[in-house]
Design a protein around this nucleic acid. Structure first.
Length: 463
RNA sequence: GCCCCUAUCGUCUAGCGGCUAGGACAGGAGAUUCUCAUUCUUCAAACCGGGGUUCGAUUCCCCGUGGGGGCACCA
């Protein structure tokens, strides 16, 4: 069996979005699954819309998601290869050569300053009511595509088409095919939106006297019902990879979710390590119908991953997050203290970007107090009495561990004929300003006696 | 308008001629925990319609309908 060579060929004309990432992922997975080669090729022929910033975003995003490329532009540890250059803007001479070949063999001709690819067959004229003009058509045999995902697809290609514009630039269909031939691409895995183009491409392969690669057209990602109809576009909420990076999602969670959009391992497994996905992924397992994007399921996947991160990794993720927050320097000033708190938060939060709000009161005395929670807590029992009792008891408590604090609090409650719950809510409100957080005993321990007392007193004063 | 693809809970999906149509997310209700979150239990929720083929269709075929994509000197 010949070597599998697949490519991902984005154009740097906009932000890198979910759909592109998924196409890249399926190519990458197939390459890794088969032990083949994953090529990154930049389709930057559209000079007006290209930008270096977008190009860099492609590199950064792929790198962040863990999709390393064996051949392509050099970026960090990725890239290189013998079939370059890997940017179409630098391959002009190759396109000229292929154009000449077609001209020489009579499969291309010039008209209106452009170069057209010539179909073989009897010609006739017909009025096209979509374009509202008369066009010349060619009676050709239908193109048969043996798609690895769709099965047999038959389509008529019945009009000559432009391969070089009158400004001298080659068009997408032409460069795409030429590059795939030159780079010895064996499998073309791309979005279903290209299925209709494939008949053109097949004719071009034939024109060059080359066997076409295997095609595999994957389903598209559609908007979720709340977002409306149609395929996901760059303007839709949650469509950009950059957004998840900024929200500090775990790239492996995003990749896992994306893999499940249009593919499944054949059983009920959903969360699975990338190595397992690589092992199980194959083209016949890819669905034929489009999938709607579900941000909630992605968020859940992210949480599931977050919960099981080893402590060191979680702290490092937290550090990346706080490095970008205005309060970051203060928060991370004391490494041990920071780590302690982050590990208290880890099992409780759903995403890293909640960390700031969730742990704020640990790092400043000037934290906000939730008025709604206050109202609720202060309405029940005699919270002010509990605060007073706590204030009196805390100085003598053993703050050396959660367990000793718990024992002390429970014995205080017992001595008053009350339960732990009678103190918990109001104490929590005093030290954290809210009703959600790590266990009260942990908060006490981390904060220390002095701050706990100070906050208990403060709440007593204002209430 | 023409061409191509597609169709199971709200969403992602399993099913590959005979099943109480399974799982997951989201939603409802309980339980556990010092709060919250997690976790656990539980409930509700689907085979687009019509024809065939067959002893028997969610499953195979055809026609509708719905959804998606394509029809450029864009990529």
């Amino acid at each position: 069996m010949s070597q599998v060579r697949v490519r991902f060929a984005p154009s740097p004309t906009g932000f890198f979005h979910i759909g592109s990432a998924r196409t890249a992922l399926f190519n990458w997975l197939y390459a890794r699954h088969t032990g083949g080669t994953f090529i990154l090729r930049i389709e930057d022929t559209d000079q007006a819309r290209n930008s270096e910033a977008f190009l860099n975003l492609i590199y950064e995003s792929l790198d962040w998601l863990g999709m390393d490329w064996d051949e392509g532009p050099v970026f960090r540890k990725n890239g290189g290869g013998d079939y370059g250059p890997y940017r179409q803007s630098q391959r002009g001479d190759i396109y000229q050569r292929y154009k000449q070949q077609l001209l020489d063999s009579g499969r291309a001709y010039e008209k209106d300053g452009a170069i057209w690819f010539k179909l073989l067959g009897e010609r006739y004229k017909v009025f096209d009511d979509h374009r509202k003009k008369e066009v010349e058509k060619v009676k050709t045999a239908p193109v048969v595509i043996d798609d690895r995902i769709r099965g047999r697809v038959e389509r008529q290609e019945d009009e000559d088409f432009v391969i070089f514009r009158s400004d001298g630039n080659p068009v997408f269909h032409f460069v795409n095919v030429v590059d795939d031939i030159e780079m010895k691409v064996s499998h073309i895995i791309r979005g279903e939106d290209h299925l209709s183009n494939t008949s053109k491409h097949v004719r071009l392969y034939e024109g060059f006297g080359v066997t076409a690669p295997v095609f595999a057209h994957i389903p598209l990602i559609l908007k979720s019902p709340e977002m409306g109809q149609g395929k996901m576009s760059k303007r839709d909420k949650g469509a950009l990879i950059e957004e998840y990076q900024q929200r500090h999602f775990l790239p492996e969670a995003l990749v896992n979710y994306l893999a499940l959009l249009g593919w499944n391992p054949g059983d009920d497994r959903e969360k699975m390590p990338i190595a397992d996905i690589v092992k199980l992924f194959d083209l016949p397992g890819v669905n034929q119908s489009n999938a709607k994007f579900d941000g909630k399921k992605l968020a859940n996947m992210n949480m599931v991953y977050l919960l099981e991160q080893p402590a060191d990794r979680f702290v490092s993720l937290a550090r990346d997050y706080f490095a970008k927050q205005p309060t970051g320097a203060t928060v991370m000033a004391n490494e041990a203290y920071f780590r302690d708190i982050m590990l208290l938060a880890q099992p409780k939060i759903k995403s890293v970007d909640e960390l700031g709000a969730y742990t704020g009161y640990f790092f400043t005395d000037d934290f906000s107090i939730d008025p709604k929670v206050t109202e609720k807590v202060m309405a029940k029992g005699d919270p002010k009495a509990r605060l007073t009792e706590l204030g009196a008891a805390v100085p003598a408590m053993d703050f050396s561990s959660d367990a000793t604090i718990e024992t002390a609090l429970k014995s205080l409650a017992e001595s008053k004929g009350l339960g732990f719950g009678d103190y918990q809510a109001v104490a929590r409100l005093a030290v954290s300003g809210t009703n959600a957080g790590p266990s009260l005993t942990s908060i006490f321990r981390v904060l220390g006696k002095e701050k706990v007392l100070q906050r208990l007193r403060k709440l007593l004063e204002v209430s």
